[in-house]
Design a protein around this nucleic acid. Structure first.
Lengths: 150, 150
DNA sequence: GCGTGAATCATACTTTGGAGTGATGCCCCC
DNA sequence: GGGGGCATCACTCCAAAGTATGATTCACGC
């Protein structure tokens, strides 16, 4: 994470240096002091401002993008003793599926699904599936609504 | 919204112009062509890059901050014909409350709550409360989980 | 090899949810 | 002043969810 940031900054730094050199070169090769210095400076300022905006937005976006994607809160899961199979059931529950639909999708009997759901409810210390989904989301055991899963 | 953005850009543009003028002035007043042009250009480039980064991050942040807070999707609500009372029930449903609990909190009979819930389900075109909550969230009829409400 | 725990399926039972239908009072609007 | 939508309450019926308890199989670890 931190290394990637430093690398990005370094790359932009090198890019900046190269661009500066190039500009100076162009000035001496082709413009030969004929153009006003103010105009030249203005061009440089514009160019580097644009570069700065680009670089800044790139850095900011790098910092924010990972917030969107889901990472499982493993410690909470382990602490509550919730198994991977229960997470599967929980995920389908959160999509609004009935026990019977979950049974169909996971190739289980309705009994087994009910058993899993019961365990989930007791482990999350709630007594309704809707509450279980709420709690699981707030504990980052399952993604927020709207996220796509396989 | 859009006006504020334009205003911000205009202010930064003016600031840029002023800074350019100031730099040119300084060059002619005090450095008098003694310093190498490359060094001068480098300074300008650095300064304006920094300005660009600042400006860029400012603009990006302006765009992202309001995303956090909840705004009701009025058009969707009106289009589906969902009433304010139904939104109240929906909100409590989304917190995982049972019909009886909702009845208690809103000082209603269980029958009335069931009636509201039925209307909500048919208006949202679903047949389970968990799905209704999912759909209502995705339509921005109710806040995402974790948001605080009165 | 024996205990432990996950995953599976089962039976029996209670509670909650949801569909269908209908009634009443209220307010707004033509 | 009558129709329409909303909010409220009511009753029935069936489906789904949840509780309780327990059996079986399998894998893992000491």
């Amino acid at each position: 994470m931190k290394i990637a940031l430093v690398k990005t900054v370094a790359i932009y730094g090198l890019f900046l240096a190269g661009l500066t050199y190039l500009l100076a070169l162009i000035k001496f090769k082709f413009l030969v002091r004929d153009l006003s210095v103010e105009f030249y400076v203005g061009m440089v300022a514009l160019l580097f401002t644009a570069l700065g905006v680009w670089m800044g937005s790139k850095l900011v976006r790098k910092k924010r993008e990972p917030v969107e994607q889901f990472v499982m809160n493993e410690s909470a899961r382990d602490h509550l003793g919730i198994t991977s199979r229960e997470i599967e059931v929980l995920t389908l529950m959160s999509a609004g599926h009935s026990n019977e639909e979950i049974a169909g999708q996971l190739f289980l009997s309705l009994h087994t699904v009910k058993s899993h759901v019961s365990h989930i409810l007791s482990k999350l210390d709630v007594n309704r599936r809707t509450q279980a989904v709420e709690k699981a989301r707030s504990l980052h055991l399952i993604p927020k609504s709207g996220s796509s899963l396989v």
